[in-house]
Nucleic acid binder design. Structure first.
Length: 486
RNA sequence: CGGGAUAUAGCGUAGUCCGGUUAGCGCACCUCGUUUGGGACGAGGGGGUCGCAGGUUCAAAUCCUGCUAUCCCGACCA
């Protein structure tokens, strides 16, 4: 049977093994594409549903904008062009001709204007916002869309970087800078809550440096997370776009005072990449470990009755247990597959189900069930009457997963301000390093070239002449966190 | 976009150097039986345009040419 590579042997291989073996996803026929299988998709759906209600509760409305974007739209915002030009799928023709069963592009169907498959939707959305905004009464507009986008990446990995991925992209338009900035920050908090409370993933949050900022943003805030191999993964971003897109698409509004004013923008998103984070933050050598709140199966029941003794009564007993859990709103399923118990135990550990309930003849006769925790491996016999405590066990697992991930992040985050120590530490192991930086591109670039570590985010600004940049020794402007990143 | 490797059943592979039976094996699958508390076992069975297109030859998975795709490593990126 399939065994997965140990994390310590080859973390990258472990990651791929887990995804394929746990049946989350598999490779699509076109390079960089991925089929998200039912188990992986239901995981995504649970996250999506949670986030979707947060988005709606915070006053946003869902809408849908087209996949196809005229090439000319992308040209309108200079930095945006620069950022995305190198990774766009382009539609140039609309017809194929069949020659002896071989399909060829019909040259006569060449498009007047080439069409871009959206790498993100700012341009098409701001094109529409121009039509929608004339007065201060039209603002703010707070739109979100769940969509797929395409970025033609050189190097791809399941969930982390695929040519096509699923995400949510929020786009808002505001009358003032303050309001847009407040929106940007509110979203950061929303993502923080999603990651910490639901995915049990601790975060490190801050602004991006010039070099790492989103193409077309004035400020990018990012949600940084630490994987088990101690590399950083940017798991979500929220951008303050200033008036860049408003200006590029000529969107203006008339104020109460009848003055023409520019429109301020934000955009923000999290993608299926977050599933990658989930895998790499919690997984172990047995496989996935999914936090109860988003687990497709919170409890899996494994009946063990090889000889079908007292079949009817036994099955009724199992059903009773199942129904009790259902009534407690626990996502629960019974594994009646033809596999041996041993296989099922391993398989559900691989798939990361938080709790397992074994019911054999032994339990049946004693009116008990055996509960086994994925996180600790602990087994406990309880009576059916005690099943109601499982909801709190699940919460306990959820909290435990968050706190152990938190401890891991803390234990592997160091504060230092000596460059030779910095280099020594990073050459030895991956980690997060908090340190001071002078804010210059040159220092950042040099550090990246020498250590491969990048500024993940700016934690805070500093104004103290005693604090010096770790690289240049010049007065420091920011406290930042460095790490090697995915 | 550079460097490397690979392409044989659903998956993993042997065979390729040195052309020659009906392309072999493991896993998975199907049937039957025995099993089942930490990845069960036996017997039987089905499944292959050997990546694609040409060429050499009496004969090509094997040699030659071209193409395509994927994987790994770098540069770039959510």
């Amino acid at each position: 049977m399939a065994k997965i590579t140990k994390q310590s042997d080859n973390f990258a291989k472990w990651y791929t093994d887990v995804i394929l073996e746990a049946d989350l996803a598999e490779y699509g026929p076109v390079k960089g594409t991925m089929v998200i299988k039912p188990y992986g998709y239901s995981l995504w759906e649970n996250v999506k549903d949670t986030l979707n209600s947060m988005i709606k509760e915070s006053g946003h409305e869902n809408a849908y904008f087209p996949l196809f974007i005229p090439k000319s739209f992308l040209e309108k915002e200079a930095k945006h062009v620069e950022g995305f030009a190198k990774e766009c799928a382009v539609v140039t023709h609309s017809k194929l001709i069949s020659e002896d069963g071989v399909l060829k592009v019909d040259p006569s169907s060449k498009l007047e204007e080439e069409i871009i498959v959206r790498p993100t939707s700012e341009t098409i959305i701001w094109h529409m916002f121009k039509k929608w905004v004339t007065s201060y009464r039209d603002l703010p507009i707070k739109i979100n869309q769940w969509a797929n986008v395409v970025r033609w990446e050189m190097r791809t990995r399941l969930f982390l970087r695929t040519s096509e991925f699923l995400w949510q992209e929020g786009h808002t338009a505001h009358a003032t800078k303050e309001e847009a900035m407040a929106e940007t920050l509110m979203i950061v908090d929303m993502y923080k809550c999603l990651f910490e409370d639901h995915l049990a993933i601790p975060t490190m949050i801050g602004r991006k440096s010039n070099m790492e900022r989103f193409a077309g943003a004035d400020e990018t805030y990012s949600i940084e997370t630490m994987m088990r191999d101690k590399k950083a993964l940017q798991a979500g971003t929220s951008h303050y776009l200033g008036t860049n897109f408003g200006t590029a698409f000529d969107v203006k509004f008339q104020s109460k005072e009848n003055k023409e004013q520019p429109v301020f923008a934000t955009s923000w998103g999290v993608s299926t990449r977050m599933i990658g984070a989930l895998i790499m933050v919690h997984g172990d050598d047995k496989g996935l470990k999914i936090p109860p709140r988003i687990a497709p199966h919170q409890v899996v029941i494994i009946p063990i009755n090889p000889k079908n003794e007292e079949k009817e009564k036994f099955d009724n007993f199992v059903d009773t247990i199942y129904n009790k859990l259902k009534n407690d709103s626990i996502r629960c399923s019974i594994d009646n597959s033809n596999n041996s118990p041993g296989f099922k135990f391993n398989n559900w550990e691989l798939k990361g189900a938080p709790l397992r309930i074994d019911i054999g003849l032994k339990e049946f006769q004693n009116n008990k069930v055996t509960v086994c925790r994925r996180d600790t491996g602990e087994k406990e016999e309880i009576s059916p009457g005690q099943l109601s405590q499982l909801s709190s066990t699940l919460e306990d697992i959820q909290k435990g997963m968050y706190s152990s991930a938190s401890t891991f992040l803390e234990e592997n985050t160091f504060e230092l301000n000596d460059y030779s120590e910095f280099k020594k530490l990073l050459s030895k192991e991956n980690c997060f390093i908090k340190t001071y930086w002078d804010g210059s591109d040159i220092s950042e670039l040099k550090i990246k070239q020498e250590t491969k570590a990048t500024i993940r985010c700016i934690l805070e600004d500093v104004n103290d002449s005693n604090l010096k940049c770790i690289f240049s020794g010049e007065p420091a402007k920011h406290l930042v966190v460095f790490a090697k990143a995915y």
